[in-house]
Simulated scan of single mutants.
Amino acid sequence: MFCLWAAALALPNGSFAAPGLSGTVRVIDGDTLDVGGGRVRLFGIDAPETDQMCTTEQGQSWACGAWVTDQVTTLFAGRQAHCVAVDTDRYGRIVAQCDVRGQDMGEAIVSAGLAFAYRKYSNRYVFAEKGAAVRDVGLHASRVQNPSQFRQTRAVGRIPPDRNCKIKGNISRKGTRIFHVPGQLYYERTGIRPETGERWFCTISDAQSAGWRAAKR
Rank of each mutant, 00 (worst) to 15 (best):
L4A: 12
A6S: 08
A6K: 05
A7E: 12
A10P: 09
L11K: 15
P12V: 02
G14L: 04
S15L: 08
S15G: 05
A18D: 05
V25N: 14
R26D: 09
V27C: 05
V27R: 01
I28M: 10
G36C: 13
G38V: 02
R41P: 12
F43L: 14
G44S: 08
D46H: 11
P48V: 12
Q52V: 01
C54M: 11
C54T: 08
T56I: 14
E57M: 15
Q60D: 10
S61R: 15
C64F: 13
G65Y: 11
V68L: 12
T69D: 08
T69C: 14
T74Y: 04
L75S: 15
R79I: 00
H82P: 03
H82Q: 15
V84Q: 03
T88K: 09
R90Y: 06
A96Q: 09
D99E: 15
V100K: 06
R101T: 03
G102P: 06
Q103I: 02
M105E: 07
A108E: 12
I109P: 05
V110G: 09
V110P: 12
L114K: 01
L114R: 00
A115Y: 03
K120W: 05
N123C: 04
V126H: 04
A128F: 01
A128P: 03
G131M: 06
D136E: 05
V137C: 08
V137W: 06
A141I: 11
S142V: 02
R143L: 10
R143P: 03
A155C: 06
V156S: 03
R158P: 00
P161V: 07
D162Y: 00
R163E: 13
K166A: 05
K166C: 02
N170I: 04
G175P: 13
T176H: 12
R177F: 14
I178T: 09
Q184E: 10
Q184C: 07
E188S: 02
E188R: 14
R189E: 11
P194K: 04
G197Y: 05
F201M: 04
F201Y: 01
F201N: 02
C202T: 03
T203H: 04
I204P: 05
D206G: 07
D206V: 02
W212G: 14
R213K: 14
A215K: 07
K216T: 13
